[in-house]
Design a protein around this nucleic acid. Sequence first.
DNA 1: GGATTTTATGGTAGCGCTACCAACTGGCTG
DNA 2: CAGCCAGTTGGTAGCGCTACCATAAAATCC
Lengths: 348, 348
Amino acid sequence: MANEKPLPQGRRRHQGVNRVTISDVAKEAGVAPITVSRALNTPDRVSAKLRKRVDQAVASLGYVPNLIAGGLASAGTRVIPVVVPSLSILTFIEVVHGIQQTLEGAGYQVLLGSTDFDLDREASLIDSVMGYSPSGVILTGLRHHDRTVHRLQTWGRPVVEIMELGTPCIDMNVGIDNIQAGACMAQHLLDRGYRRIAFLGVGMTRDYRAQQRFEGHRQVLAAAGIESNLLFASEEPSSYEAGRRVFLEALAARPDLEAIHFANDNLAAGALLEANRRGIRVPEDIAMGSYLGLSLGEHLTPRLTTVSVPRFEMGVEAAKLLLERLQGRTPSQPRVDIGYRLTVREST
Amino acid sequence: MANEKPLPQGRRRHQGVNRVTISDVAKEAGVAPITVSRALNTPDRVSAKLRKRVDQAVASLGYVPNLIAGGLASAGTRVIPVVVPSLSILTFIEVVHGIQQTLEGAGYQVLLGSTDFDLDREASLIDSVMGYSPSGVILTGLRHHDRTVHRLQTWGRPVVEIMELGTPCIDMNVGIDNIQAGACMAQHLLDRGYRRIAFLGVGMTRDYRAQQRFEGHRQVLAAAGIESNLLFASEEPSSYEAGRRVFLEALAARPDLEAIHFANDNLAAGALLEANRRGIRVPEDIAMGSYLGLSLGEHLTPRLTTVSVPRFEMGVEAAKLLLERLQGRTPSQPRVDIGYRLTVREST
DNA sequence: GGATTTTATGGTAGCGCTACCAACTGGCTG
DNA sequence: CAGCCAGTTGGTAGCGCTACCATAAAATCC
């Protein structure tokens, strides 16, 4: 209005190529911008006639909503940050996969973050992703920085904690009881008649869920009167190679071992493949039980006995819980025990 | 301005809990909001004194920038969508991991999308992530919808295409030459004296990069005067199980096979483990060569000969290229051949 | 020492969208 | 037929931030 020199010709500045905006669509359809917004977001509040005109205009102009602007105006950007400890551990990948597939189908996008098992990094990562006004958050485990817990609790949007089951949780929780899972395998090994049973893990200082499984293992053995000081661990990340090496260390230190309870299938696979190579018979010379249920376990010789966890399904379930809340419903059960299954195969 | 009844007390609406804004920080520090913005984004344009006051105010209020608002104002949200075909294929995961680690270190976040090898889905996914005003994009392969190519080309922000090397590319390119990689393994098998060589893949209609490797394979055999109609494939997704099954099919159909060139390590591992189980000797009864260089290959018996590709490094390289452009520099080389290495082990 | 450049800060106006409220329509009631 | 309601549509005012420009202060010049 009475503005003389600015506005060279069209839009004022930046924004890369001038994208099609909601006003362009409105003009094309001969309606107000707000009507376009409604036609797209709450179609049933717009008459069929206008809705059609708007849809046509959208199609003919190739309009793509600027979710950033929408997010600023209404808060909530249809982004769901998923925070996991590591992207080099297959378990988390499969969970993320389940999450991603479920959310993408509902029009949400996954923002990926990894913490390297460090709660400080988790806290700052969450601070920073909060800057995207996400619609909800999925994070790993129940242990977090106080600041993180407080910030998410007062936030007022859905939060799902995965992998681990327990209280207190910030909002919703999908996972398994790691102590029980560890106990389950230990009990199985006992039932099979093994007595000199080692637990073999790596990176357990950082991955406290593996510690919990060891705790379950320890309790079961203790209850059976077996002192379970047979813990072999190192601080390297989990890998076939780590499994191989720690397995050999354990054998060297305790040649009388009857069975090994591995913290996860990667370690077990590394060890089992090494046993194959050296002609160590499994389970005759030494039995092996593990945790996870990676498909590799079924293809090894002998097939690996494992406590298997439906990882993909855990992701799907977490995403579903989140979506339910985003759609305004209250999940009947905000805490889902995804369960585990003892899969007895040939290695024990 | 003479506004009587609205504004109950504080801020007008929503936005969950009233977050600390840049104005709050400005008030606390006794400066203008724009100065806070500068102190945070371009610290060297603010005097040390004010910068310190601002930093203190930020810390004491716990201010976290609203990247959405920043993105709207300036375009560019420090989000990098990474679009891959699948999250159930380890290769892509490792690339994503490299990308994520590199970008996160520079303050960018990865927005994850998967297309299931479908270019239509890729196109609509890209449309939708463009709604986040990303700072750049990383996508898989060089083949895309025309619309995708055009939209990204006129977009004016950095785009990296990964996995595959060639022309034309939209902007920047990091990958390997799949035809050469396929040829490399075929040549190796020939050099070893094998003649009846099958190529074994799955899902090759969708994964045209595997087709390219087969093409390289075919060319080498043809040049040696060998008709290579020995292609065994199915349309299932790649897995150990698929490798096992197709391997058995191939053996049944052509008991005289001397060597198999697998499209990837997962298939090869499934086959090799099955061979172990059945007492089929590798490479005496049948040789196996593969592609990828998964760590599993080193732990199998026999160790797997493979053309290995530095997947993590490919991700790192792609992210670096992107960052360089985001920081206003022009990469000396916008096309990086990440290369592959023939790792000869025991299976051939 | 006055004119010019450089540097540091602030004011203003949106980025594109949607929450909120106002207005308008047509149908129905009494 | 005035009065009222439900159903639609539109106007306006920001969401929190930064690009742009103006201004003030300091540094540099001839």
